[in-house]
Amino acid sequence: MELPPYATTGQRIWHYTFKVLCGLILFFLIAPIVVIIPLSFNAENFFTFTPGMLAFEADAYSFKHYQDFFSNPDWQQALVNSVQIAPVATLLSVSLGTLAAVGLSQDHVPFRRAIMAILISPMIVPLIISAAGMYFFYSRIGLQGTYVGVVLAHAALGIPFVIITVTATLVGFDRSLTRAAANMGADPVTTFFKIQMPLILPGVISGGLFAFITSFDEVVVVLFVGSAGQKTLPWQMFTGLREQISPTILAVATILVGISIALLTTVELLRRRSERLRGMSPG
């Protein structure tokens, strides 16, 4: 994207126009976040930029919504529930998903397309249908309103992401490495954990993160499949938006954006590490 020194004026104009355009689109992407952060410091209980805020008066800003988040047992419980549900659901989808992705990437898999379609289905079935279907079914077998029920439902929703990312990493996987390991006497389990796993780890991790976010940000299914005991953060936000608009939601969002940035940085670092491992040059 470097502009060559011999570029014509027209090329220069185009080059800068393109950069401005991209800048605008990127701004479009983060605009909502830019709005959320200041509003979360609003001293009033509405999603409104008060005149005081626009004039940068100190008393128009406050930390009260953050205090509310950290002191309100409802929010704290929701946070605890989210933290208890999402990792377990993620673990379940990652372990089952990785196994299946390894199976799927073998050479001769019968009914590969059909199996793939079934495994991807949680991503393509409209969420409201999934929610209602799981709700009726889980009620019947006594899983509705239980921790296990919500974890299973969220795990199912996260699986397509794991499958997609892991199979994508396996496409670039050099099969001769496992053969070499087997040749040297490693059993399949050792081969998997010592050879294959480290190399597909980035895919597994990014799939896992997608699965985690799916569970962590999921509201429709948990609203149906869960009950009070499984009230997650998005559920609390949803009731908050419906019953009582309070910028506490924005405070939570701001905190979560912070965590997202941390997570994304982690992913990026991991990716760089894996590329070093695979001996690929960055780029």
Partner: peptide
């Protein structure tokens, strides 16, 4: 449980189950 909004639907499903 903050589910009064869905109470009728949920009670019916609970009853079915």
């Amino acid at each position: 449980d903050e589910s009064s909004n869905e109470a009728v639907a949920k009670l019916r499903a609970m009853n079915e189950a």
